[in-house]
């Protein structure tokens, strides 16, 4: 079995741009394949992060999806990944939505929204790859977890 091509963050940004600008008539007939492609691109984003951190990516799944398992792995010890937990779940949701009703009237719209969600994941993680602190100021509360792991004796 040959391993599929893993896209880089830049390639994912370009590909989502293509999907977003494609005509509706070009998207709808390829709905199931595009749903799978979007999900795979989401996985590629997290694989790029794990590779940059020297981690072996899990082959497991969470709730049936590798994307969610990869997110869980990436978030371990790195709470700023909280910031893309719902983004990953939205990517899975849109995948399911497209797959469940590939010929429905909203299919092209759902593909575009799914592409925007994956694009956000790529932008966030791409930003983190350039600037490791992205997301660690605000919602991640890294100090809470560090404090739990390593009791400190601050001087005040």
């Amino acid at each position: 079995m040959t391993e599929r091509h893993r896209r880089s963050i830049d390639e994912i940004e370009d590909r989502t741009d293509q999907i977003l600008t494609a005509a509706e008539a070009d998207l709808a007939p390829r709905a199931p394949a595009l749903a799978d492609e979007l999900l795979a691109m989401g996985e590629d984003v997290l694989l790029a992060w794990l590779a940059a951190k020297g981690q072996t990516p899990t082959t497991g799944t969470v709730e049936g999806f590798r994307l969610l398992a990869l997110h869980r792995q990436a978030a371990r010890g790195n709470p700023s990944f909280n910031a893309c937990r719902e983004t990953c779940r939205e990517a899975v949701w849109h995948h399911n939505l497209i797959r469940l009703d590939p010929t429905g009237p909203d299919t092209a719209r759902n593909i575009r929204l799914g592409a925007m969600v994956v694009r956000h994941l790529a932008l966030f993680v791409g930003g983190k790859l350039e600037s490791d602190g992205l997301g660690e100021f605000c919602c991640s509360s890294r100090p809470i977890r560090i404090a739990e792991q390593t009791p400190s004796t601050p001087q005040a």
Partner: peptide
Amino acid sequence: FPLKTACCGGAHSLSDSDTSTKL
């Protein structure tokens, strides 16, 4: 709206403006 809790890069608005603008 699927991005209702997505990161806007707010904390990096000035230090990493390009990422924030894209987000």
